[in-house]
Nucleic acid binder design. Structure first.
Length: 557
RNA sequence: UGUCCUGUAGUGUAACUGGCAACACGUCUGUUUUUGGUACAGAAGACUCCUGGUUCGACCCCAGGCGGGACAACCA
């Protein structure tokens, strides 16, 4: 049977944007072209919400044989920096996408300036000398019309002259702006003579000091789309009210008219998605940088052990629509578990060790077992696991006074040691001076011997373990959600919702010998615990692992 | 007391031109299992926001309500 071909497109339901694209293709609105773009502002790092947009834009181009540009929306020199453009490029590539072209809004500053002159000549733009406060006051409110600027009806000649002198640097910041002349009574605030150009004597990360006036987002964005021949300009819902202005500007200048389409931004439970607030978390040291594994940034997710495949799968599953909502973070966790279950090799690691002496082992006796690397993957191979007189098991896997639902080791219940075909039966509990359990003495019984004696209790559980012999010590960072509240939009001050237990550093964890020579970024399933990856802080002698996500746990149900 | 957008199982997304409301996650059962994982089988869960209209037939079209969101940066 041949499984090479994809499912026919008709079997897959389309999202509303795909419906639009297919219809445009059918009517040849843009010929056979589909051209999208991902337009980040280089003023911060990308997060999982951006990943949704990246998957959407690049994905659309891919599935319809089109192109997708990466375009940095760098119209505000005071917040932008090359550090961020580099980070963004790395993140997009890491996610698995390659842009057809890389552009910057600043590439078009000269052309955009020309469009401004066209508008002025058409009597559709003017130089306004009101202060920011006056402009704001004159704009009115959504329910109250604005009033026209006294500078609104200057002559074209005067406007052209002032505009040239603005560019020449004759005026200070804020002294003058270029405004569109549209309608101060429009119910859409964005049509009340929006600002097109402002004076900013600031160094731009790409154009240096060539300009001291910069176009606003509204003025630049549609023109950039148009110049690049974008067919579908996809953005989030908050730009919906900007669309009439987007359309108006392009119509006045009479150039290629891309279609702006808005979709609902991603919201995730227990996750904050505001770039500004994420920046604050970093600056206030509530996390350890943009790539802190608790951060929803691409860099954070990468360090946490998330894979591009899992993030793409997640983006696919959540779909695209226009209604606002909030996705359960459990869906993201499902995507990464599904990927890692299939692809991560298994290893045994005891995070909170309890020493167990196997009393029937000789002092230097070592047995060795073969353990499969990944039971979900054919021919994944095996690794050697040694067993010696002293082993460690997870503290939580032993209970002196268990209830009915406890399946693991207890005074009356032996357990199997995974991969070892060996049962251990408790002989003695050794307490320290505080009366706490210090170590266990157990008898090790090979499985055939154990099963041969029909009076032995039925084995109910198999636990992981690590022998002292050749074991590796490591630090393991166990993460929990950064916030305690599911819907952060309902919290006035997010700092009150921070989870004090979002990071637990476990030291002295015992790992099996196969984990001795791991590489940074490598992922493993620590059997029965979860998926962990090697952190960048890891060195040859001091291993550090991050919890990516725990295994699903139905204990106690 | 404006304009625009938006209401479908707990969550998210489908349902093409008006024709049995489907899929995924989550939840719950069971089977298998040397991971309380995975896999497999199954279940519960929706007056499709409400009221009326058009129609043989409405999640879909129309009217009116109600709920949620966006918009008043020289940010994007």
């Amino acid at each position: 049977m041949n499984h090479t071909e994809e499912k026919p497109a008709t079997e897959k339901s389309l999202n509303f944007i795909e419906h639009i694209v297919e219809n445009d293709l059918k009517t040849e609105k843009n010929g056979t072209r589909v051209h999208t773009r991902f337009p980040p502002e280089p003023n911060g790092y990308l997060h999982i919400g951006h990943a949704k947009s990246i998957c959407l834009n690049f994905g659309l181009a891919k599935s319809y044989g089109g192109q997708c540009n990466l375009r940095f929306d760098d119209t505000n020199p005071i917040t932008e920096d090359t550090e961020y453009v580099e980070g963004i490029e790395a993140d997009v590539r890491w996610l698995g996408f390659q842009w057809d072209n890389k552009f910057y809004a600043s590439d078009y500053f000269e052309q955009i300036y020309g469009y401004a002159e066209i508008l002025i000549k058409k009597g559709l733009a003017y130089i306004c000398e009101l202060t920011p406060e006056e402009i704001s006051a004159n704009r009115g409110t959504p329910t109250k019309a604005g009033v026209e600027s006294p500078y609104r009806n200057r002559s074209v000649v005067e406007n052209l002259d002032f505009f040239a002198r603005m560019r020449a640097g004759e005026f200070a910041d804020g002294e003058k702006v270029l405004r569109a002349k549209i309608d101060m009574t429009s119910p859409n605030m964005h049509l009340r003579d929006p600002i097109l150009y402002r004076i900013r004597h600031a160094h731009h990360h790409r154009t240096g000091n060539a300009w001291c006036i910069y176009p606003t987002y509204d003025f630049a964005h549609g023109f950039c789309d148009s110049i690049e021949g974008i067919t579908h300009s996809i953005c989030t819902l908050e730009f919906e009210v900007h669309r009439p202005l987007y359309d108006w500007l392009i119509e006045q200048v009479e150039i290629h008219h891309p279609q702006q389409i808005e979709f609902a931004r991603l919201n995730l439970t227990y996750t904050m998605m505001s770039k500004r607030k994420l920046m604050a978390l970093v600056q206030n040291k509530q996390v350890n940088g943009w790539d802190d594994p608790r951060m929803p940034t691409i860099a954070g997710l990468r360090r946490r052990g998330y894979t591009p495949a899992a993030i793409q799968d997640f983006a696919e599953r959540i779909g695209v629509a226009r209604r606002d909502g909030i996705i359960d973070v459990a869906l993201l966790e499902f995507s990464i578990r599904e990927d890692l279950n299939k692809n991560a090799n298994r290893a045994m690691a005891v995070l909170e060790p309890l020493k167990v002496v196997l009393t029937n082992f000789e002092e230097n006796e070592v047995k060795e077992f073969d353990a499969v690397l990944n039971p979900e993957k054919e021919n994944s191979g095996t690794r050697k696991v040694p067993m010696s007189r002293v082993i460690y098991i997870e503290r939580e896997d032993f209970l002196e006074n268990p209830d009915k639902n406890f399946f693991r080791l207890s005074p009356s219940q032996p357990v199997r040691l995974k991969h070892a075909s060996t049962m251990i039966r408790l002989q003695r509990v050794i307490l320290n001076s505080q009366g706490e359990i210090e170590e266990l003495h157990c008898q090790a019984i090979p499985e055939p011997d154990y099963q041969a004696d029909k009076t032995n209790p039925k084995i109910k559980a198999t636990i992981h373990w690590v022998s002292e012999h050749n074991s590796v010590e490591a630090e393991v960072r166990v993460y929990d959600r950064l916030f305690t509240v599911a819907d952060l939009s309902e919290v006035e001050d997010y700092t009150t919702a921070l989870n004090p237990e979002s990071l637990k550093v476990l030291k002295g964890c015992k790992l099996e010998p196969s984990l001795k020579n791991v590489k940074q970024g490598e992922s493993f399933q620590f059997e029965r615990k979860g998926y962990f990856c090697v952190d960048k802080d890891s060195t040859e002698n001091d291993l550090v692992f991050n919890l990516t996500v725990t295994l699903k746990d139905s204990k106690g149900k």
